[in-house]
């Protein structure tokens, strides 16, 4: 039981990171009906940038500056590479984001350097005991931060003018434009938000660890998450992130009893298997809107 609960703590902590990443995907998808494959690169760039900033500004200010900087990078990318393609097939834009991902990742990766870099977070690998269950502080921090960010995000969509504009644009782009919503601003804000979320996720994914060039692989787990939750559901992204995180952690823990014939850990492919199984039953995810095609 204790083992199971420990896995649960790890799962929720990782799940919070996945949820943040997935929210970025969903925000972009809702505004422009495109899955941005550039998120992994922004996440890695965020972690690396923060690792450069923390020695000078301290962790909190450094992380904040890093997140803002990555949001700005995402803004520029949107304006330069994505905006000219608006109106083209979504597949074309998605492929462009793959191109952006590769370029940003290579540029960011060249700053990793030879010496091990750490994010400089105050948690490290410290752990506390909650009712006999050891939970790492970084996982608690990730859960708390994700909760706060999700609440802020939902309040943002609910109460601000631009949030309202974004919801309107997601519902019906042309009708929103007819009402005076600037679609360009919506695109820009959604990319900036997604970049910022990716950078925050990067900080937590890298905490307690050394940053290496394969950090971006963590962000790929967000893809099964958004498929599980549904591409256009913010709530689905959060739930999906936690579910995938839990499944992954539990499979990782019980790997040797469940799959003794497989040597390396099956936890790494569990998210994709869950995704395939969900798609067999519900092709549009758990909370996604069913696609209706009008002729």
């Amino acid at each position: 039981m204790n083992e199971f609960l420990t896995a649960g703590g790890v799962g929720l902590g990782n799940g919070a990171v996945y949820a943040l990443l997935a929210l970025g995907f969903v925000i972009i998808y809702k505004s422009m009906q495109v899955v941005s494959f550039a998120q992994p690169a922004f996440m890695m760039a965020g972690a690396i940038l923060v690792s450069y900033l923390t020695p000078r500004f301290g962790f909190w200010l450094g992380a904040l500056l890093g997140v803002i900087a990555i949001a700005a990078v995402a803004l520029v990318v949107e304006r330069v590479a994505i905006r000219p393609m608006v109106g083209k097939a979504v597949f074309v834009i998605a492929i462009i984001t793959i191109g952006v991902d590769i370029v940003v990742r290579v540029v960011a990766g060249s700053f990793v350097g030879v010496d091990p870099r750490s994010i400089g977070d105050p948690w490290g690998l410290g752990a506390v005991s909650l009712g006999g269950v050891r939970v790492q502080e970084r996982h608690i921090a990730a859960i708390v931060a994700a909760t706060l960010i999700v609440l802020l995000l939902f309040a943002f969509f609910r109460y601000t003018r631009i949030g309202l504009a974004m919801r309107a644009a997601a519902l019906d782009q042309e009708a929103a434009m007819a009402q005076g919503v600037s679609i360009g601003t919506v695109f820009a804000v959604s990319w900036a938000l997604a970049g910022a979320l990716a950078a925050v996720a990067g900080v937590f994914a890298a905490s307690g660890n050394v940053i290496d060039r394969s950090l971006w692989m963590v962000a790929l787990v967000a893809l099964p998450v958004i498929i599980l939750g549904g591409l256009d559901s913010l709530g689905g992204a959060v739930v999906g992130g936690l579910v995938i995180g839990l499944v992954e952690a539990i499979v990782r823990t019980y790997h040797s009893t469940w799959f003794p014939f497989l040597g390396t850990n099956t936890g790494s492919i569990a998210p994709y298997v869950v995704m395939l199984l969900v798609l067999l039953v519900r092709p549009h995810g758990l909370f996604g809107t069913k696609e209706v095609e009008r002729v």
């Binding site: 495109v34 597949f91 893809l223 790494s268 995704m275």
Partner: peptide
Amino acid sequence: RLRGLYLAIVTLGLVFI
């Protein structure tokens, strides 16, 4: 059963598995 980007993501999963 899938279209467009869902398909792209699922086939991506195939690579990892």
